[in-house]
Design a protein around this nucleic acid. Structure first.
Length: 422
RNA sequence: GUGGGUGUAGCUCAGUCGGUAGAGCACCAGGUUGUGAUCCUGGGUGUCGCGGGUUCGAGCCCCGUCACUCACCCCA
């Protein structure tokens, strides 16, 4: 709009009243984690670049072309986190949490950064809720993690979302399957770009949305048909537990994730009201991540949910969440003497836990009443010169319009009583 | 990174054939020298994204550029 400073490309500001909805979504998504014994963790928003190049995977798009990487003044290569799991795992290893009781259950929420072409629901700066259950390879834990994700969306009132579920195999069966798939893809008529992708990560070709590509994949071999016995047993157990937990899902044998660390159970939450960027959350098991970062060979599972995208989903479904409460009481002074009383009264009310406000700047009575109306206050006190001369203020109920004189000394109590229970 | 669409007031938008801007909402003030939400009246709050070109004259036409947006890709 102006030629002045603007938020960087691909970023946005969240302002009132939308910001209240953002907070409500964020807190609703994390509540199930807190109820399930997950502990809050805070890690830096930037890490040594190796945390991501080794953790997320050297060959991934995220690492090769989407990271904000820079050298600091000490010559260290640092990177703004493109996701939150790798940093959490780094902290888990650094502080030897694996030496304690297992599983270690953690969650965090915060900013992530990726240099991508902005699009609906895709930004260069975004906010994720991230949770991890580390150190135990128990299918019941996989089910717990998935169910907690579902719970967050349910608590928001979302209905137009779906859980996509599959197993990506493990270190024993995936390499064999990968060979099968590579051989299959080699026979297809694919463009240069897709051929390159097939060489780096053949599984990702399965996820291609272009009809001309999909048309050729009709009888492509699927990972779920080539799982090892133990991996299959694990996946079966996960599904059994999910059924017991009342979670429904859609089998998605072609589901692929763009981060290299995923193994076995893999899932995505998609919402139908968001356009192309339909994934509001995703995750899975990553039994090789700790070792890749130089830690012990421990397993892990977790997910990331996009707070901004979930907010878009909430709005797409027209859900009324995080409505701004406004204040309960409002004081309108006329004249400098009344102003002192108003400031004092509002201060007392706030200390007593009553949400209160007054007007600032030079405003006439009409304008002040308008501000009082906008504030959402149910009760307003008007104090003018004439009232002060009589030692009273006018207490007005904004809903009924009724107004009565109250002695100045009793205004605080009268307002506090009037707003109780609101 | 590739391709399409759009940029006019705080917001949503109109602007004819090229003649230097308008509506609704919002906001402010007055009607009521002391009363909001209704009503009436008044107020435009603008670098027509930016830069250049054509023209007597550009919001409108041309070129470039930036931003936003949608899709591919990627993914939260």
């Amino acid at each position: 709009m102006s030629a002045g400073l603007t938020a960087p490309k691909g970023t946005f500001d969240t302002l009132p009243p939308d910001s209240a909805r953002f907070l409500a979504v964020r807190d609703t998504l994390t509540a199930p984690l807190r109820r399930a014994g997950y502990g809050y963790v805070e890690t830096p928003v930037f890490e040594e670049t190796a945390v991501f190049s080794r953790g997320v995977g050297e060959s991934t798009d995220v690492v090769t072309k989407e990271m904000y990487t820079f050298d600091d003044r000490g010559g260290r290569s640092l990177t703004l986190r493109p996701e939150l799991t790798a940093g959490l795992m780094r902290a888990f290893i650094e502080h030897r949490l694996h030496d304690g009781a297992l599983p270690v259950k953690l969650w965090t929420v915060g900013s992530a950064f990726r240099y991508e072409r902005p699009q609906a629901g895709r930004y260069r700066h975004f906010t994720q809720v991230d949770m991890e259950a580390l150190g135990t390879d128990d299918p019941a834990l996989d089910a717990e993690v998935v169910a907690l994700g579902v719970q967050g969306f349910r608590d928001l009132g979302l209905t137009d979302f779906e859980l996509l579920l599959t197993s990506l195999g493990d270190a024993t069966c995936r390499p064999q399957y990968r060979e099968l798939l590579v051989a299959y893809l080699a026979k297809l008529d694919l463009d240069e770009e897709t051929r390159r992708r097939a060489a780096i990560n053949p599984l990702r070709v399965l996820d291609d949305k272009r009809p001309e590509v999909q048309a050729q994949l009709g009888d492509a071999p699927l990972m779920v048909d080539h799982l090892s016995d133990s991996t299959r047993a694990h996946y079966d157990a996960v599904r059994q537990h999910l059924t017991d937990l009342g979670v429904t899902w859609t089998e998605a044998p072609r589901l692929v994730r763009g981060l290299d660390y995923y193994t076995k159970t893999t899932f995505e939450f998609v919402h139908s009201g968001l356009g192309a960027q339909s994934a509001i959350g995703g995750g899975g098991r990553y039994d090789g991540l700790s070792a890749a970062l130089g830690g012990p060979d421990v397993s892990g599972i977790g997910y990331a949910v996009g707070v901004d995208r979930t907010l878009l989903a909430v709005q797409a479904e027209g859900l009324d969440i995080g409505a701004v409460a406004g204040v309960q009481a409002f004081v309108v002074p006329l004249g400098s003497e009344a102003k002192r009383l108003a400031v004092r009264l509002v201060g007392q009310l706030r200390q007593a836990g009553v949400a209160a406000d007054t007007v600032y700047g030079d405003r006439g009575l009409k304008g002040a009443m308008k501000a009082a109306d906008r504030s959402g206050a149910s009760h307003v006190v008007v104090v003018g010169e004439r009232d002060l001369a009589e030692g009273v203020g006018q207490l007005k109920d904004m809903r009924t319009g009724e107004q009565r004189a109250v002695p100045v000394a009793e205004l605080f109590d009268a307002l506090r009583r009037a707003t109780v229970g609101e």
